[in-house]
């Protein structure tokens, strides 16, 4: 599904250069659940953004179903992201003045899909995360756990093959975190590849594979499959 080949990322230049990723190689298949762990500043977020087509690496390639993310122009990359990727973040990144369902629809707004199908798809995803009751609530008025579930629904709405999640449970209480973990596992069983960055041991436990990075390098890969 996704194939990261010899990816390096250097921030800045010359004496101020920071080597955030150093020759990373990872392959993730459909239905795989991969957790990326490592100390703070080790390059986890950088890796996730690079894999998600949001951050151009200094060298190396990211291939999704054989198509290279960074050998195409911006618009084509946006289209690829829309086709393959769903994102979740530690701080949700919802648009506060839109309702739950409108936030879920965001990935669809440029697809030319009509309003009705957009709504139907978004409703379905909200149902999946158990939020059908909050459909028309403003995002800013949702509880934190609900926000992350809306973000989860949004990551699903374009039916991606890959979900990238950066510390999705870090801001949640134990119970909600469980819930989110459960959902991620369900997606996995539906053939979606889940790639997440975490400090959360529980997430580590449910992952098929744990990739440890340190100073931009993969230091250990534990395959539990």
């Amino acid at each position: 599904m996704i194939d990261v080949q010899n990816v390096s990322k250097i921030y800045g230049s010359n004496h101020q250069a920071i080597r955030a990723l150093d020759d990373i190689n990872i392959k993730v298949d459909r239905g795989e659940f991969v957790a990326i762990v490592g100390p703070s500043g080790s390059g986890k977020t950088t890796l996730l953004l690079t894999m998600g087509g949001l951050l151009t690496p200094t060298s190396g390639k990211v291939l999704i179903d054989g198509a290279s993310f960074y050998d195409v122009g911006g618009p084509a990359r946006t289209a690829m992201r829309l086709k393959y990727c769903g994102f979740m973040f530690q701080t949700f990144h919802l648009i506060p003045y839109l309702t739950a369902i409108e936030n879920v629809q965001l990935p669809l707004i440029t697809t030319g899909m009509n309003a009705r199908s957009q709504r139907e798809m978004a409703e379905e995803c909200l149902r999946t995360v158990g939020l059908e009751e909050r459909t028309n609530q403003k995002a800013s008025k949702l509880s934190v756990g609900e926000m992350q579930r809306v973000a989860l629904a949004r990551a699903l709405v374009n039916r991606p093959g890959l979900i990238f999640a950066d510390e999705p449970t870090a801001n949640l209480d134990a119970e909600t975190a469980e819930l989110v973990i459960d959902y991620l596992q369900t997606f996995k069983s539906e053939g979606i590849a889940v790639i997440l960055v975490t400090h959360d041991d529980r997430l580590g436990q449910v992952a098929d594979r744990i990739v440890q990075i340190r100073q931009g390098k993969i230091v250990e890969e534990t395959d539990k499959g």
């Binding site: 946006t78 990144h93 648009i95 965001l106 990935p107």
Partner: peptide, 16 residues
């Protein structure tokens, strides 16, 4: 900025 960032990340192109 935040809204624009998220829109650009998930669906929109700069021209949108």
């Amino acid at each position: 900025r935040q809204e624009t960032g998220i829109l650009l990340a998930i669906s929109a192109r700069p021209r949108h």
